[in-house]
Design a binder for these strands. Structure first.
Lengths: 255, 255
DNA sequence: CGTTATTTGTGCGTATGTATT
DNA sequence: AAATACATACGCACAAATAAC
């Protein structure tokens, strides 16, 4: 087992400030501690304090004004865009059908994107279907139109939390999301999902799952979910049928 | 006129590296220059070089491996577009080349999406190119790699505000965004941009503009900008070359 | 009005640790 | 084992923006 390295000082400070902000310690127009105050309080160098602030600015938690100070971003209104809640609510009117139950894999690419220091990940493959009006459904046949196939990769400790969930075994049908299944078990809540969206041809698995030709142009969405400590929790790679699905986001002005 | 402040050294370096990456100077497994090499080449301190790399990591352009080096992110040119500010800052490192100057059109579909009660809109078509290093550039020839073609539709009152802007006449080359040109003239600032992202085949215009085959699968992004009064201001329909471009957004938890 | 103190922004130098080759 | 390359952390100096006097 690799020796547990202590967290860097700037990350500890960042986390601490984040918690204070979340606790409402710095409402509306209240200035956060200045750099020099934090230097004095924690015995750190100014550069270290600055690094913590820099990260908080990057994640949108605070903004800084030269000569004036640092302020928490008003959390009340949606800051940037369609939120993570939107992703979770996907389950409301779609059905998830597991093609390949959660199992241990060796996958260098996925492991490195999850920032693991080894090659083992836990993987589950499923497709999602638009719900149809019940009624025209024959017994033993899953109802609905498949529009996306997703491969989810989890680090081992995370996978252990849902290892016995019946929703993630081959053939299971439910109206969940993986992240929705995970969240209640996590110590740190999910805070971020970084997405990359591009076009990619359907491979054999994707084509079979959604019923299109192999090589058909698909909307590929990669999502990396991270918790409040910025630790990767889940990597999801989805192939959407563009004929059945359009990705929508609304950006809002930050300041 | 305010005195022009020079850009910080780390931003200049960041921009330069970004351009080199876009120009394909560091394909697949090729390591970027090390910190010490850049220190020597540009006469900067290591901290300054690190700051540039830190920003490139944050925007997803490169990743770094301790003990090994810094590498450009795979094929595509990544750009974080998680806020309206990000959309506007597209102009920082890309060039806009007008193919079809701003002119009056009858377009029922565009007019209805702009919530107009008639069919007249004002339309401008342009493509955008990754900036490249100057030098290998012949006179009269635009330098760079085209990666997107955009059709912008404006309501008549909005079009009037920029009707005489030389940046929107056929053949004009600049480093603006349409929304950036518009904003200073608007009574209400832009507050929202609703986006739909899907896959669509390149039509004749798009194929010619970015140099791909007609029918080539493209990433299609429709954006509807609205002001604080929720009035539509601009409709932009873009076709991105997926080989040159990946759309990135980061979702955050609302509260 | 300018002056001064405060606060953040930029930039440099150095030292030490850790991962990779 | 040694060299290379990135990560963390400390220190200092000066510039620019802001606010209070």
């Amino acid at each position: 087992m690799p020796a547990m390295r202590p967290e860097p000082a700037y990350q500890i400070l960042r986390q601490r400030l984040r918690e204070e902000i979340a606790a409402g310690t710095y409402p509306d127009g209240v200035r956060l501690p200045t750099e020099s105050e934090l230097v004095a309080e924690y015995g750190l160098s100014r550069q270290t304090v600055r690094r913590a602030f820099q990260d908080l600015v990057a994640e949108g938690a605070v903004y800084r004004v030269p000569g004036r100070g640092t302020y928490a971003r008003d959390n009340a209104y949606l800051r940037q865009l369609g939120s993570i809640e939107d992703l979770m609510s996907l389950s409301e009117d779609t059905t998830m059908e597991v093609l390949q139950g959660l199992s241990r894999r060796v996958d260098v690419a996925a492991a490195s994107r999850l920032r693991l220091d080894h090659d083992v990940v836990y993987t589950v493959v499923f497709r999602r279907l638009h719900d149809r009006r019940a009624g025209a459904q024959r017994p033993g046949e899953t109802d609905g139109v498949p529009f996306v196939v997703t491969t989810v990769h989890l680090p081992e400790p995370v996978a252990r939390l849902v290892g016995d969930a019946p929703e993630l075994t081959t053939g299971a049908v439910s109206t969940n999301t993986v992240i929705g299944l995970l969240e209640p078990h996590l110590n740190q809540p999910i805070a971020q999902a970084a997405q990359s969206i591009t076009v990619a041809p359907a491979d054999g698995v994707a084509a079979g799952a959604v019923g299109c030709d192999q090589g058909h142009p698909m909307l590929r969405v990669d999502r990396l979910y991270s918790d409040t400590a910025a630790a990767p929790v889940e990597l999801a790679v989805s192939y959407f049928l563009p004929e059945q699905y359009t990705y929508r986001v609304t950006l809002r002005r930050s300041g």
